[in-house]
């Protein structure tokens, strides 16, 4: 095989990755829908309706993820972007634990609802940042085989 053919083949691979990256754009409703579901769930928990809030958030999260996969036709794979999601989730979890301790341990009414606003905002900001990280990771990936 000639070196020119090898170079052209490698350029083709990079081009395909860039095309995939361009396709990975979450629709506007995904991040905002997720944030709205979080907000509703936290408010319901804060007002002692946890038995509605938690299942609602679970169903909303699963439904939005399935809808996203069907809309884009792509199930992404990006280890670095996934690690960023985990890091943002830990921040949200810590915030939630503190809010629960304040509301149920310290008697601060509405603390969980306020945390819900913060976690919803985190979901929107982190969602957009993760989308960008995902596209960057796909474009700049040094290992197109994903190994």
């Amino acid at each position: 095989m000639e070196s020119d053919s090898a170079r052209i083949a490698l350029e083709g691979v990079a081009e395909v990755r860039a095309r995939v990256a361009d396709r990975i754009v979450s629709p506007w409703w995904y991040h905002y829908g997720f944030a709205a579901a979080i907000l509703l769930a936290y408010v319901s928990i804060s007002f002692r309706f946890a038995s509605y809030g938690v299942p609602f958030l679970t169903i909303a999260a699963v439904g939005l993820t399935v809808a996203l996969k069907r809309t884009t036709g792509i199930e992404p794979r990006a280890p670095r972007a996934t690690r960023a999601v985990v890091a943002w989730s830990l921040v949200a979890l810590a915030l939630t634990v503190v809010a629960m301790a304040l509301e149920w341990g310290g008697g601060v009414k509405g603390a969980v609802a306020v945390a819900g606003v913060a976690v919803a905002a985190i979901a929107v900001v982190a969602g957009h940042r993760t989308d960008r990280a995902l596209r960057r990771e796909l474009r700049d990936g040094h290992d197109p085989a994903g190994l």
Partner: peptide, 10 residues
């Protein structure tokens, strides 16, 4: 190359 960049694609 396309499929390597994702988990799966339609």
């Amino acid at each position: 190359a396309m499929l390597a960049a994702v988990e799966s694609a339609e």
